[in-house]
Computed example of a mutant assay.
Amino acid sequence: MSTEKNPLGVFLRDRRSRLDPATFGFSGRRRTPGLRREEVAQRSNISPTWYTWLEQGRGGAPSADVLNRIASGLMLTEPEREHLFMLGLGRPPEVCYRVAAGVSPRLQRLIDTLDASPALVRTAAWDIVAWNRAATIVMTDYDRLAPDERNILRLLFCNPTIRTFQHDWEAMARFVVGAFRADAARAGATSEIADLVDELCRASPDFDRLWRENEVISHGEGTKRLKHPDLGDIELEYSGFAVDGRPDLNLVVYNPIDPAVAEQIRRQVKEKQRTGQRVSAPELLGASGRSKTNGKPHARSREGT
């Protein structure tokens, strides 16, 4: 069968040819580099005949389980595993959630360039794992919080002072719970958030009530309104972005609508950089606002955090 008609086989042969047999305890003289087909089959716990057929383009489409075993046997990276599924099944693999250990230095440097736009990176469990200086001014100084306190839902539902910063706390809280549920499902983290959900249901009757409503909401774009103690009543547009290769992470950037507010934030960021001192900020100002689609508000209110 020609290369053009069997891209899966070409990809498999290429990846096994790159592996060092000695690394996996295989020995013996070889005419070609890499692992033999039967060795890949052994590492993948599948039939050598079935694996040979895959490389030869015979036997029909493989199952997702077989592809996952081969990906493990060939030690594929996540992008390579996704490519394997696209070749074998015409779709990406199911999302496999992993707990975020932080963000790359490149991503941190990127959000640090936004001197007037607060930016946050959150996990599917809504833990904040990265932020810029503008966020410490407009939201809260996450450096002052312990890692387990940097969770939006814990702050929102377990700290009564949060309500005083909201224009419409009820609508905002309902939006947050629905978006949280959607994010967890999208990242394949439904079972991983179970303990957090149980904790919040016990700690907050409001969260328990809203969680039982089973609402699912997208958190793509919208408007966020804050009662800021220094900046006054402000309004920001926000957009959410998936982090490529990390389905567990979401980048949210907030852009002040009023240029005067943006300039105030920029000045405070510069002052913070100059002095190296912390800038006081309210404890996670969750926002109230109208989510937008093509610049038009939805019929019902959408609240952002």
Rank of each mutant, 00 (worst) to 15 (best):
S72G: 12
A71S: 15
T140S: 01
Q166Y: 12
P118K: 00
L156I: 13
L114D: 02
A64H: 13
A125I: 02
F85E: 00
A116V: 07
D141H: 03
D127T: 09
T140D: 00
I137A: 01
A119W: 02
L89I: 14
E78Q: 11
S44A: 15
N68V: 12
P118H: 13
T77P: 02
N68E: 13
A119Q: 04
T136C: 02
Q56H: 04
V121I: 15
R144G: 15
A130M: 00
R150C: 04
G88M: 09
R58C: 06
A100I: 15
L110I: 12
L87H: 14
R144E: 12
S44Q: 05
A119P: 05
R154K: 14
G102S: 12
V99D: 15
V129E: 02
Y142F: 14
T49E: 10
L155R: 03
I111S: 04
Q56Y: 03
Y51L: 01
G57H: 06
T77E: 00
D115N: 13
P160V: 04
T113F: 08
Q108P: 04
V103P: 08
D168R: 11
A119N: 03
E82P: 06
M75N: 15
E149D: 15
D148Y: 11
W169Y: 06
Y97K: 02
E78D: 05
V95E: 10
G57A: 04
R81S: 09
S63G: 08
L153Y: 01
A134P: 04
L67V: 09
G102Q: 07
A71P: 06
P118D: 07
P93I: 12
P93W: 09
R69W: 02
I111L: 08
D143L: 14
V129A: 07
S63P: 00
A61Q: 15
R144M: 05
Q108E: 10
H83K: 13
P93F: 08
R81M: 11
Y97H: 12
S117F: 01
C96M: 15
M139A: 09
S47K: 08
I152F: 03
E78N: 10
D168P: 09
S47A: 10
S63Q: 03
M139S: 04
N45F: 14
G90W: 14
T49G: 09
E94R: 03
I128M: 01
E149N: 13
P147M: 10
P147K: 11
A134N: 05
I137F: 00
L156D: 06
R122F: 05
A119Y: 01
R106I: 14
V129L: 08
Y97M: 06
N159I: 13
E80A: 15
L153W: 04
A130T: 09
T136P: 00
P62Y: 07
R154F: 04
I46Y: 12
R43L: 15
S44E: 08
G57F: 03
L145G: 01
L120C: 05
E80K: 13
W131L: 07
P48H: 02
I152N: 05
W131N: 04
L67F: 03
P48A: 11
W126M: 13
T49P: 05
P92H: 05
G57D: 09
Y51G: 10
L110D: 05
R69E: 09
E94H: 08
L156K: 06
L87W: 14
Q56K: 13
R122T: 15
Y142H: 03
G88A: 10
R163M: 07
A100F: 08
